[in-house]
């Protein structure tokens, strides 16, 4: 049985879809069978980030309602072995799917794939509840900002309160700008971890490659010189159980920050 992992955040626009696309692609590159599920029904996005928007015939709601078989609705990504997408319905609503239906769907997918990654909609309403229904693990994406961390805390609380067997939530801090952190103008990762009391899965820097790759429909992990892509690769390896250290370099630590730490001021 594969792992069902939901990528969620509470707050919108913090990088759930970007994370799902890049992490999924990296996991597939590392030899896993991966399916990405766009659970953001009504606001289909993952397909364009993956560059698969022209190939959708059937979507998640078609499968749930029995209008299509699961096999028919899975879109194979031609660039990666073993990478598939199940798109969200665009003209339907969150309430058209129930938590139970989602759970059945992800259970079925977990029998075929090593990793089932669910791109969760923003918010904590029906769409969120459906997306977490069948997941055993949760990746919480947060930006180093007060509102985002606050919402992350709320979502972690809801995740912990769910019934069933679930692993503790894991945090990805996205859009970190090391220069700002060094200057004291951005929350530090350690402070976020302490406040949220969660395990850190990875740190992803702010990276222009993300925007370029989204324009092209090619996740940044395909690009050799994307720092964010490298960070997502490391996260994929951690998810596979490898002990990849969380390097400061992942966030492109500036010389100044390192200097401050070596000299002993900056809190490390």
């Amino acid at each position: 049985m594969g792992q069902v992992i939901v990528v969620t955040s509470g707050k919108g626009g913090v990088g759930k879809t970007t994370t799902t696309a890049n992490l999924g692609t990296a996991l597939a590159q590392l030899g896993n069978r991966v399916v990405l599920v766009d659970a953001d029904i009504g606001l289909r996005n993952l397909d364009v980030v993956m560059g698969l928007e022209n190939r959708i015939v059937y979507d998640l709601v078609d499968v749930v309602e029995g209008n299509a078989r699961l096999k028919q609705a899975l879109i194979k990504d031609k660039r990666s072995e073993n990478l598939y997408l199940l798109a969200a319905a665009q003209t339907r609503e969150k309430k058209d799917v129930s938590a139970e239906q989602m759970k059945n769907l992800t259970d079925q997918l977990a029998r075929e794939f090593d990793f089932v990654l669910l791109d969760c909609p923003a918010g904590i309403e029906d769409g969120f509840k459906n997306a977490i229904a069948g997941a055993q693990k949760a990746i919480i994406v947060a930006n180093p900002e007060v509102s985002s961390v606050r919402d992350a805390d709320r979502v972690i609380g809801l995740w912990d309160a769910q019934e069933g067997e679930r692993s503790p939530a894991m945090l990805i801090v996205n859009r970190v700008r090391p220069r700002m952190v060094a200057r004291g103008d951005m929350l530090e990762i350690d402070d976020m971890l302490e406040m949220l009391a969660v395990d850190l899965l990875g740190v992803v820097p702010e990276d222009d490659h993300i925007i370029v790759s989204t324009n092209r429909g090619e996740p940044a992990v395909y690009s050799r010189d994307s720092k964010a892509g490298k960070a997502f690769h490391n996260i994929a390896r951690r998810l596979m159980g490898e002990a990849v250290p969380i390097l400061d370099l992942e966030a492109d630590e500036s010389f100044w920050a390192r200097f401050k730490r070596i000299v002993g001021f900056g809190r490390s």
Binding site: V146, V149, R150, V181, D185, L187, E188, M195
Partner: peptide, 15 residues
């Protein structure tokens, strides 16, 4: 105090 310090303390209270 840096803006990160202020953010941290505000977060602590709000949480």
């Amino acid at each position: 105090h840096s803006s990160a310090d202020i953010a941290r303390e505000r977060l602590r209270l709000v949480l």
